[in-house]
Design a protein around this nucleic acid. Structure first.
Length: 554
DNA sequence: CGTACAGGTCTA
DNA sequence: TATCTAGACCTGTACG
């Protein structure tokens, strides 16, 4: 596979052709304006583009109508390699290490090809590429790590393509929903009519004419003045209480949340030309999950999903994995008994059928406790049963927890490392960082609390992180298959990814290809399982729905 | 007046 | 029928 390293040289771009990753045999210099044409031509034969950061190169290419098949994202790969315990860090160190460590993605709404005064321009991508290839080649886990880096880079392409495409969003439907629930859009600075009505009712019921329910402190004082025994104002707490004004207050909180998070201001800011465009940040979470930036893309409330509607003649294929994390745990630990329970579509029901636990609720509670570190109550009581029945799976998360409590680093199946613990007080026997402030809150109880919290984090890290790797492989393989499915159609005629949410993907597709897309999504899931777990018999069944509106998928 | 944080609520 | 993992982002409020 030929690699072509792209470097910025002022208003020009330098492309270094490196067969099989060796030294460059050909160097092409071209004006920035000719880059898109150059890439389009070069894409007719297999090539991997090596660049500092996908968010700096790909949006401009997409705006010019150019898709690339594969890339190597040096920023994302650097972040993985720098924290991986299966990498010799000495091979990565260079004069520019700090610069690569600090490099941030670009998420400007303006699809300008290159930002001005970019710290990336002071870094040598070709030299970094050489270091990364050497570090990867020397790793005892180079196959798995190589898969992770390829998938991470592919995810970067998907993320840029999803922002470019946008999630189809009907602002008219969204506005109708808002008007029905809140009343007509008010002038700036005023509450909608329905909230005003509720506010009057609440102030009357609590005999507090100046009460502002949006002020947690003020609301708490008003509740206590009314004789209610509360120390917080969360809805869950308030639901337990009896008071004539409580229903109105809970309704106010529900509608106020809708207005603040996904009201008219949100529509103005994030929906344009019938598309919700947010930025996805691959690797944005330490576990390897994606973060997002803009519009709260990872927490789009179910309440407003009716406004996500496919174009005329198109459909959404909405797919999510049932119980991804317990399945991943079974696969990575090689726990045959748990894999057997996972053979059914409902893993928790499978655990009941095998006699491991009495009810589905017990199974779910127990597994969540095992993966999140819940040790109290019902969830903790399940652990002995689960440990007997699934010794390898439970043993793996327990060992990750113990390692975290000892202050050690853990890693995912493909080699993504957890962040090292910080702070001298948590592990006083360990190396003390220079420049740390004097120890604060360093009582024995506080240290134990922090140790246990660290154990819960590392326990969850290995499962959530490997789950993210499965999802990344799923996404990357799906991207490739969808492109082939589109035949020779133009980008606007092809099925394409529009949304990704940890274990759920939305594909926007011409209606006549929806059945093919469904098949494709399932094939990609099976391939992701093979990539991570080889021939180990663990299934990843999908719930797939072909719908006109996202809201119809549940 | 701008920044940082607390409290709350939505997601998987 | 509970306080356990990872986030984004809103308002109000305290602080400098």
């Amino acid at each position: 596979m030929n690699r072509v390293v792209l470097l910025r040289r002022g208003a020009a771009v330098e492309a270094r052709e490196c067969p099989d990753g060796g030294s460059p045999v050909e160097v092409t210099r071209l004006p920035v304006g000719q880059l898109a044409g150059f890439v389009r031509d070069r894409e007719t034969s297999p090539v991997r583009w090596v660049w500092d950061d996908t968010t700096r190169w790909y949006p401009g290419l997409l705006a010019a109508g150019v898709r690339v098949e594969r890339c190597w994202d040096l920023r994302l790969s650097h972040a993985v390699l720098r924290r991986s315990p299966v990498v010799d860090q000495a091979l990565l160190v260079g004069a520019e290490t700090q610069g690569w460590d600090a490099l941030q993605p670009v998420t400007a709404a303006d699809p300008a090809l290159f930002p001005l005064d970019d710290p990336a321009d002071r870094l040598d991508a070709a030299a970094e590429d050489v270091r990364q290839q050497a570090a990867l080649a020397a790793s005892p886990q180079r196959a798995r790590l190589g898969l992770l880096l390829a998938a991470e880079s592919s995810g970067a392409l998907v993320a840029a393509e999803m922002t470019s495409a946008g999630l189809p969003w009907r602002a008219d439907l969204h506005e109708r929903l808002l008007t029905e629930l809140l009343g007509p859009r008010p002038v700036a600075g005023r509450r909608p009519a329905v909230l005003e009505g509720l506010l009057t009712e609440i102030r009357g019921a609590f005999r507090d004419p100046g009460l502002n329910p949006d002020s947690p402190g003020g609301l708490l004082r008003a509740l206590q003045a009314a004789g209610l025994p509360v120390t917080d104002t969360r809805s869950w707490t308030l639901e337990q209480l009896e008071h004539p004004g409580m229903l109105a207050l809970l309704e106010y909180k529900r509608l106020s949340r809708l207005l603040q998070a996904n009201g008219w201001n949100w529509l103005d800011a994030w929906v344009r030309d019938g598309r919700f465009r947010s930025y996805f940040l691959p690797g944005g979470v330490v576990t390897g999950r994606w973060a997002s930036n803009g519009g709260g893309a990872l927490s789009v409330p179910v309440q407003v999903r009716p406004a996500a509607v496919a174009d005329d003649g198109w459909r959404f294929v909405v797919s999510d994995v049932a119980q991804l994390e317990p399945r991943v745990l079974a696969g990575m630990s090689g726990d045959v008994a748990m894999a057997e329970a996972a053979r059914s579509t409902d893993l928790y029901q499978g655990m009941v059928a095998s006699g491991a636990v009495a009810t589905r609720a017990d199974a779910k509670l127990g597994m969540l406790g095992a993966m999140y570190g819940g040790t109290r109550g019902e969830s903790g009581r399940m652990m002995p049963r689960l440990t007997r029945r699934y010794p390898r799976a439970i043993g793996l998360v327990e060992e990750a927890a113990r390692a975290g409590e000892r202050g050690e680093v853990v890693h995912t199946l493909l080699g993504r490392g957890s962040p090292a613990p910080t702070g001298p007080w948590a592990w006083p026997e360990g190396p003390v960082e220079l420049g740390e402030p004097p120890e604060q809150g360093g009582s024995t109880e506080e240290r134990d609390r922090r140790r246990r919290a660290r154990g819960r984090f590392t326990r969850n890290f290995v499962v959530q992180g490997t789950g993210a790797e499965w999802a990344l492989c799923w996404l990357a393989d799906l991207r490739n298959r969808l492109w082939r499915l589109g035949g020779s159609g133009t980008a606007a005629e092809r099925p394409h990814l529009v949304f990704f949410l940890h274990d759920e993907v939305l594909v926007h597709t011409p209606e006549h290809l929806a059945a093919d897309v469904e098949d494709t999504v399932r094939r990609a899931a099976a391939e992701a399982g093979r990539l991570l777990f080889g021939s180990f018999p663990i299934d990843f069944p999908l719930d797939v729905a072909v719908v006109a509106s996202w809201a119809d998928a549940d």
